[in-house]
Simulated assay, not measured.
Amino acid sequence: MNGAGNAILVLDLRGAGFLPAPEDARALARAPGLGYDQLMVLSDPRAPGQDAFMTIYNQDGSLSASCGNGTRCVAHYLAALTGAEQFRLATSAGPLAARREGPLSYSVDMGPPRLGWRDIPLAREVADTGSVELEKFGLPPASCVSMGNPHAIFFVPTIEAFDLAAIGPVLEHDKLFPQRANISLAQVLSRDAIRLRVWERGTGLTLACGTAVCATLVAAARASLTGRRATISLPGGDLVVEWRADNRIVMTGPVEVEFSRRLTPELFAP
């Protein structure tokens, strides 16, 4: 599936009693036709009222605690199976509530942002996580936010002025980020519109990243660059994000089914 262009592979292992190992996730990413940005593995609920537990892998086999675009895709997959309109999905970072807004549109309550330097996390104490000097590549200070995974957002006059493919992997592995970081270049167009390009931790350049758009809105609103609701445009499409008065962030956007198949050993033949 894809969510605003973010390539999502949904693997339903409910009832199977096991999870892929990191090397399995890497093998799936290399299998012909199965390349993905995130792999969303569904397993049995761990608490009453949940529809499924989601384990989220990046292309390199590393784990991610949250993926907004992937969660919308999972909701659409479950809607097709059950006809339900609302879903409660769990991750290692906590529960996520998803709701169908239209035939191919879903919203996800991504929960509250985490803004403390320990919560992001950063490797050292920072007085203001909204303005963190990295002093690399001529970039302005970063705004650092966690949405269950760490993000560093750089507000620039124009995205095209920087080569994200070159600077992304360097900043992802900067010593300031003990768990690495998602790196975003953001260009504010108006009080309710932002352009965004994302280097995704463990994946690389991506057409969209749901947690990045949430982190970017928080960073922009904290800096009074926008209000608390904006349309954020990525190469894969637009996502609408709102930072509500109750401190929770709701993201709304499209999903698309590309294909469905059963995995067989032949898919992984050299």
Rank of each mutant, 00 (worst) to 15 (best):
L96S: 01
R124Q: 13
D119K: 10
S43M: 11
Q38R: 07
G130V: 07
G33H: 08
T71M: 05
A80R: 13
Y57V: 11
M147D: 02
Y106N: 01
C73A: 06
L115Q: 14
V132S: 00
S92W: 08
M54C: 12
G83C: 05
A80S: 12
G33V: 14
M54E: 10
E160M: 10
D51W: 05
C144A: 14
L42Q: 01
L34E: 03
A93T: 10
A123C: 14
R46Y: 10
P95L: 14
R114M: 14
S43Q: 11
A80T: 09
L81Q: 15
L63R: 15
S146C: 09
V108T: 02
Q59F: 05
L139R: 03
A52G: 03
G94A: 12
P150T: 13
S131Q: 12
A75L: 01
D119A: 15
D51G: 07
G148K: 03
H151A: 02
Q50A: 15
P48S: 13
V41F: 07
F155C: 08
L42H: 03
W117I: 13
Y106M: 01
A142R: 03
G148M: 03
V132H: 03
G83Q: 07
L34F: 07
L28K: 01
T91F: 00
M110P: 00
Q50R: 10
A90W: 04
P103T: 11
L81K: 11
P141N: 04
P48K: 09
H151K: 08
F154L: 09
L104S: 06
G61Y: 09
A90E: 08
H76T: 04
S64W: 00
S64Y: 04
P45W: 00
Y106C: 04
S107Q: 11
E160D: 13
A52P: 01
D51V: 06
Y36W: 15
T55W: 02
I120S: 04
P150L: 13
G70L: 00
P113W: 08
Q50G: 11
C144N: 04
A152G: 04
R30A: 15
A161N: 10
G49D: 02
L139D: 01
A79Y: 05
R26Y: 08
L139I: 14
D51I: 04
A25M: 06
G70T: 02
I159P: 00
Q38T: 08
F87D: 00
V145L: 04
T82Y: 00
D44V: 14
L139S: 04
E160C: 09
F53V: 02
S62Q: 06
A79K: 06
S131I: 05
A161T: 10
Y57R: 08
P32A: 14
T129W: 02
S146Y: 07
I153P: 00
A65G: 13
A93L: 10
T55K: 00
A29P: 01
S143G: 11
T71V: 05
F155I: 08
